[in-house]
Simulated scan of single mutants.
Amino acid sequence: MIVHKNKPKNIIYRQIDILKATVLATYKEWAAYRSHMAISIFVGPVTFLVQVFIWNAVYSTGNTVSGLTLNQIITYYGVVTIINYLTYDSADWNLQMLIQTGKFITFMLRPVSHCYYAFCQKLGHRLLALWVEFIPVYLLFLLVFKINLVPADLFWALISITLGFILMFLMNYCIGITGFWLTKTEGLRRAFILLRDLCAGVLVPLTLFPGFMQKILFFLPFQFITYVPTRVFIGSYELAGISLPIPYVVGMQAGAVIVMFLVYKLLWFLGIKRFTGVGA
Rank of each mutant, 00 (worst) to 15 (best):
P151K: 06
D197A: 05
Y27P: 08
T87Q: 15
C199P: 05
I82E: 08
V144S: 00
Y264D: 10
F53E: 07
D197N: 15
S35A: 14
G124W: 01
V144F: 01
K7D: 03
T22G: 08
A38D: 04
R274A: 04
P229R: 10
L188T: 03
I147D: 00
I175V: 13
K5M: 10
K146D: 14
L128E: 07
W30I: 09
F141H: 02
I2W: 09
L220S: 05
I258N: 04
V80S: 07
H114E: 12
G241D: 04
I18M: 04
G62F: 00
T226L: 10
W181F: 12
T75N: 11
I135C: 03
L270A: 05
N84L: 15
L139V: 13
Q121A: 01
K184F: 10
V204T: 07
T185P: 02
E186N: 07
V52Y: 15
H4V: 06
C115E: 09
L149Q: 01
P111M: 09
K265F: 09
K20S: 12
I82P: 00
Y173M: 06
S236T: 14
I242Y: 10
N84A: 11
V204P: 03
N56M: 12
T106G: 08
G67Y: 11
L130C: 14
V137P: 12
N6G: 12
N71A: 14
K184G: 05
M213V: 09
K5T: 11
V52E: 13
L266I: 15
V259P: 06
D89G: 08
A25F: 09
T22Y: 02
T101S: 15
V79T: 10
G187S: 12
P229H: 04
V228I: 00
I225N: 00
G164S: 07
I74C: 05
V263L: 13
C120E: 03
R274N: 11
T64S: 12
I83C: 01
A118H: 05
I12T: 11
Y264N: 13
L182V: 03
Q96S: 15
V65N: 06
L140Q: 01
V250C: 09
F165A: 05
F134C: 12
H114T: 06
A38N: 00
V52S: 07
I83K: 00
Q100M: 11
S66K: 14
L149S: 00
I234L: 12
I54L: 15
N56C: 02
P8E: 04
E29V: 03
I41M: 07
L127A: 11
L24E: 01
Y264I: 09
I73Q: 02
Y85P: 09
F224E: 07
Y237M: 15
T61Q: 13
